[in-house]
């Protein structure tokens, strides 16, 4: 009997690794970055300038980085939603079974393409294209980044939305059709509202993926830390800032600590999106 107990204990310990990891992630981000909050102080984060390497005045304002991340994320989400949702509707409701069996794995392949390869593709093909279309000096801007990020969010949105649409009970559809509604009316007024919470969960998850994506934005948004709402301007996201600057800082310096603070802020954003997504996902999970 002790053997059974030992095995159970071993399995339980393995399962708690996830919990411990999450705790350690928060702990170590604070351990490396926490000193920044006392000196130079938390107030210096609320600043409109990020100039961590300067002989005159080093400033660690997070606003431009957060603004950059948000601009790219909202643009990407706005582009990804119609494609993702229509794609999910097509695969779940319209495509023939054969067609579906080919389309689904094909779109999953997109999810598997490494982000650095997508960034590379963007650098060579998309950025010059955006530059020519808008007559810009450079195609490295928020729009190029958002287009690529949308491409990366679409598979997430499609896969989870399609699940949600499919799990809508058959009886709902039959009832609607029996009342004389057309297939299109049934889709828009019965199936979609019933799947809405799942679709919202999918979008939130896609957004989480977009805001946390590093290589694509690092390679293609131009990386100028400025506050702007124009998609054709260069922006610098939180993720790109960490990736670009961590290699060059002295360990333990204020700049080093500030980058860990950026990591904490980023983690809080994705954590919030995750919780939001989970709340909606649960709602649709409970219904069926």
């Amino acid at each position: 009997m002790w053997k059974e107990k030992a095995i159970k204990f071993g399995l339980m310990s393995s399962a708690s690794v996830s919990v411990i990891s999450v705790a350690l992630i928060f702990l170590f981000l604070f351990k490396e970055g926490g000193d920044f909050l006392s000196s130079p102080g938390i107030g210096s984060l609320f600043d409109t300038r990020w100039t961590p390497v300067s002989f005159v005045n080093e400033r660690f304002g997070l606003y431009p980085l957060i603004a950059g991340s948000l601009l790219v994320t909202f643009l990407a989400t706005a582009i990804a939603i119609p494609f993702g949702v229509l794609g999910a509707v097509y695969i779940a409701e319209i495509a023939k079974p054969r067609e579906r069996e080919i389309l689904k794995p094909f779109i999953e392949i997109l999810a598997g393409i490494p982000s650095v390869v997508i960034g590379f593709f963007g650098l060579i093909i998309l950025a010059p294209f955006v530059k020519n279309v808008f007559g810009l000096y450079s195609g490295l801007n928020a729009l190029s980044g958002a287009l690529l990020l949308a491409l990366m969010a679409i598979p997430t949105i499609i896969t989870i939305s399609e699940d949600a649409i499919k799990s809508c009970p058959k009886s709902y559809r039959q009832a609607s059709l029996a009342m004389g509604a057309s297939r299109l009316q049934t889709l828009w007024r019965v199936v979609m509202p019933a799947s809405l919470s799942g679709i919202i969960a999918a979008i939130a998850l896609g957004m989480g993926r977009v805001i946390g994506e590093t290589m694509v934005v690092l390679m293609i948004t131009g990386n100028a830390p400025q506050i702007t709402a124009s998609p054709l301007e260069s922006v610098r996201t939180m993720t790109a800032t960490i990736a670009a600057e961590m290699g060059e800082v002295a360990f333990g310096s204020e700049h080093y600590q500030a980058l860990f603070i950026v990591g904490i802020v980023l983690l809080l954003f994705t954590f919030a999106l995750n919780i939001f997504s989970r709340l909606f996902y649960r709602r649709y999970g409970n219904r069926s």
Partner: peptide, 22 residues
């Protein structure tokens, strides 16, 4: 545990990098 798994799945890859560094 489930909440931890979902959270872990949502941690941005660059934050994993920071964590691994620390």
């Amino acid at each position: 545990i489930r909440l931890a798994i979902v959270t872990l799945a949502g941690v941005p890859s660059i934050v994993f990098g920071l964590f691994g560094l620390g």
